[in-house]
């Protein structure tokens, strides 16, 4: 555990909590892509299967359980409890365009051709692109609430901080995982445009509105 990894995890946790609180407090999931949340739930489910096969640390187990629970709670809020507020007409990203390439890539580019390893690889590739339905929704409606922007910023920062963690681990522990690094860089790159808007608009007190 190094400072980048810890900050990354804190940022990830913060993002999930911000989203849950936003939906709960406003009693609405307007502006939130249910599809992205479904993809994140799939990501955590397939990645954390090792929760039952091997123990890493109390921290590791605790965080995995929290991410899984929070993810399913979010799905429940969007698709059950506050379903009437779910903006389905704007959540039109075709996720099969993500699932198909991710599945093919995980079958071709993995560390080992075993079920658990392929599912782990699948989750890594899927996470990299899981935010696309949400970003598509923001671009479609042309705006995002401040709180949604904070959520996206925290969620985007998390993998960026993980990249610093991987650089650190490469030099300090000679550890690296090319699959995670490749997907992590792609994931962070996808947020770049949003980061720019967040810094130039939201942090200056303006609404996140895209140029027409």
């Amino acid at each position: 555990m190094n400072i980048f990894r810890l900050l990354g995890d804190v940022s990830h946790l913060l993002a999930i909590i911000i989203l849950l609180l936003k939906i709960w407090k406003t009693r609405s999931c307007a502006g939130i892509s249910g599809k992205s949340q479904l993809l994140f739930a799939l990501t955590y489910t397939t990645r954390y299967l090792d929760l039952v096969t091997n123990f890493v640390s109390v921290y590791n187990t605790f965080m995995k359980v929290v991410f899984l629970a929070a993810s399913y709670a979010t799905i429940w809020l969007i698709y059950m409890k506050f379903r009437a507020t779910y903006d389905q007409n704007h959540d039109t990203f075709r996720i099969e365009f993500l699932l198909l390439p991710v599945t093919i890539l995980s079958l071709v580019a993995n560390h080992e051709f075993t079920l658990i390893e392929i599912l782990w690889t699948w989750s890594i590739y899927l996470e990299a692109v899981a935010i696309l339905p949400q970003l598509f929704m923001v671009s479609k409606t042309g705006e995002a609430e401040s709180i949604t922007s904070h959520y996206l910023f925290a969620l985007g920062s998390y993998r960026g901080l993980y990249i610093l963690n991987w650089i650190y681990r490469y030099y300090m522990e000679s550890y690296y995982d090319l699959i995670a690094i490749f997907a992590g860089i792609l994931q962070t790159v996808l947020y770049c445009d949003f980061f720019y808007l967040y810094i130039t608009k939201v942090l200056r007190g303006q609404r996140l509105q895209l140029p027409a």
């Binding site: 990894r5 090792d50 091997n54 890493v56 590791n60 991410f67 080992e112 390893e117």
Partner: peptide, 10 residues
């Protein structure tokens, strides 16, 4: 180190 190893990251 690279490849399959026990994964300590989230």
């Amino acid at each position: 180190l690279c490849g399959v190893m026990y994964k300590d990251e989230l």
